[in-house]
Amino acid sequence: MSGVDCNEVLQRLWTYLDGEADETICHDLEVHVQECLHCRQHADFEVKLRKLVQSKCRGERAPQQLRADLARLLSSLP
């Protein structure tokens, strides 16, 4: 079993899922999340939620008019 308990894992879960957890503890977190159903369910939910928010809030396209305005603006600049 890994050297971290559920409290520590949940406290650092966002940092871990962001790929920002400290190297010294990263492996322990990974092992724990794999082995512990309770923490894995938390992690899975957060990952799915993040993907859902991305799918709903990304993918905007700049309007053609803005593109044209920008091109005109930039070509007029010294």
Binding site: C57, R58, E60, A62, L66, R67, L70, L74
Partner: peptide
């Protein structure tokens, strides 16, 4: 310079606009 800048605009405009 202009060409390089235009390439930057094209590459990043959609995500910046979003």
């Amino acid at each position: 310079d202009r060409a390089r800048f235009e390439a930057l605009v094209n590459e990043h405009l959609d995500s910046l606009y979003g």
